[in-house]
């Protein structure tokens, strides 16, 4: 499984990438593999507030629905709208094209509580 070193992770398999003061969020390679073919992604609207550890949307395969959990609290400032029409990007390129939202964090220090790539890779090894 691909676990890029420059990202931070949640235990629920979301990744977070710093972009200036903001945080880009998506799901990991492991998550998309577990889910199988993603057929639908439901995302919040720009301007919505999200809270760390709480659901901000869902991702669906044909037989399962999984909630998406925010890695940090803040305001949604960008949404990857093309995913609604082309959810396959989540499978094909989870770390780039498959990004989901950008958050303007209200408590930037929460980023430090996320898992490092090494810790996340360790978590995956345990699950195996």
């Amino acid at each position: 499984m691909n676990v890029p070193e420059d990202l931070a992770y949640t235990r629920e398999h979301e990744w977070a990438r710093r972009k200036g003061s903001r945080v880009v969020v998506g799901i990991t390679d492991f998550a998309q593999d577990q889910l199988g073919d993603v057929v639908y992604v439901e995302l919040p609207a720009v301007g919505d507030e999200v809270k760390r550890g709480e659901s901000f949307g869902v991702v669906e395969s044909t037989k399962a629905v999984s909630e998406l959990f925010a890695p940090v609290s803040g305001t949604v400032v960008e949404v990857n709208d093309p995913l609604v029409e082309a959810p396959e990007a989540v499978n094909e390129d989870p770390y780039e094209e498959g990004w989901m939202i950008v958050i303007e964090p209200s408590e930037p220090r929460q980023l430090e509580d996320l898992l490092t790539s090494a810790a996340y890779a360790g978590l995956l090894a345990e699950q195996d």
Partner: peptide
């Protein structure tokens, strides 16, 4: 059958 994720056997109480 499609769009099954709306239905009870997958989404249960939601």
């Amino acid at each position: 059958l499609t769009l099954s994720t709306r239905e009870q056997h997958i989404r249960r109480e939601k």
